[in-house]
């Protein structure tokens, strides 16, 4: 490969400048501002802000509402990413087999990716409406057996259903690509040695799929922490009784609906730290198990 040599020291910076400026303006500057506001009490209309040290953090960390929101966020992280990855893995394994419908399925399973999560939320609220949706007949038989508007457990189920549906395509395509890249010889050799499909799944496919699984887990977990906003805003608005008030939604509500810029910024900083921690831990503990060599 031929290497380019820049004689001027400024030229590489100049070439990178547009990207760096955009990154700074839309990524680093807001983060810096969030840190600034987290240590200040900020008047909504910008009349003045005063330095208050760690007071905002003490207030946020001392409120029961924050902890229940953080708990719900972690629960959602585990269950939402777990359920969507598992579903995508099962579908990818099925689509990888030489079944008749595989080519169609590989195409069809990607479609939900084209639908915005807000639209998915609106549609699922209607599908799961306790009086008009597909489960309404159950309510006619046993009144009150399904009501995601008042029953927190039902609300969570509704949220997961919508999330799995919207999260499948991304994991599906990465996992399927990983499966397809596994050489056929390994399957054939395994089969000749008498390994059935389950055995080959355990000993050949899953171990060789770990790089893709790792990518999917890291991205899905990070996304479940910050990407649930569209679903929550359209489906539950944090209800009933704050049961689905995940941190991303609480930050929006506190900052934009309640003009609590300092509190919202403080929680943003905490959420950022959480995402960084979770991702870091995954690299430390999970990546060890990944086999990149084939």
């Amino acid at each position: 490969m031929k290497q380019a040599i820049f004689r001027s020291r400024l030229l590489p910076w100049a070439l990178a400048a547009p990207q760096l400026i955009v990154l700074f303006l839309f990524f680093y500057l807001p983060i810096l501002l969030a840190f600034f506001w987290a240590f200040h009490l900020e008047q909504p209309f910008g009349g003045g802000s005063q330095f208050v040290g760690l007071q905002n953090f003490r207030r946020v960390l001392g409120s029961a509402e924050f902890w229940s929101s953080a708990g719900a966020t972690l629960l959602y992280m585990v269950l939402a990413s777990g359920s969507s990855i598992l579903a995508a893995l099962i579908l990818a394994l099925a689509a990888d087999r030489a079944l008749k419908v595989s080519p169609v399925a590989r195409n069809v399973f990607l479609w939900p990716k084209a639908v915005a999560s807000a639209s998915i939320g609106v549609v699922f609220v209607f599908i799961l409406n306790p009086y008009l949706g597909i489960l309404a007949p159950l309510n006619d038989l046993w009144p009150g057996i399904w009501n995601p508007r008042t029953n927190a457990v039902h609300t969570w189920i509704m949220l997961f259903a919508a999330n799995v549906w919207s999260a499948i395509p991304f994991s599906f395509i990465i996992l399927l690509a990983g499966l397809q890249a596994i050489p056929q010889e390994l399957h054939k050799a395994g089969a000749m040695d008498g390994a059935g499909p389950w055995r080959r799944l355990r000993d050949i496919q899953l171990p060789l799929l770990t790089p893709q699984l790792f990518v999917v887990i890291v991205l899905e977990v990070a996304d479940s922490l910050s990407g649930s906003f569209g679903l929550i805003d359209t489906m539950t608005q944090g209800g009933p009784g704050g049961a689905t008030n995940l941190l991303v939604y609480k930050i929006y509500a506190d900052g934009f609906k309640a003009y609590d810029l300092s509190g919202a910024a403080t929680q943003t900083v905490i959420l950022m730290a959480l995402v960084a921690c979770v991702t870091g831990l995954q690299y430390v503990f999970l990546e060890r198990k990944v086999k990149y060599d084939r």
């Binding site: 009933p240 009784g241 704050g242 008030n245 509500a253 609906k257 309640a258 609590d260």
Partner: peptide
């Protein structure tokens, strides 16, 4: 911060 109070009131009484 009355707008925020209204949300808190709704959330608590809903429970």
């Amino acid at each position: 911060f009355y707008v925020q109070f209204r949300d808190i009131f709704m959330e608590e009484t809903q429970k």
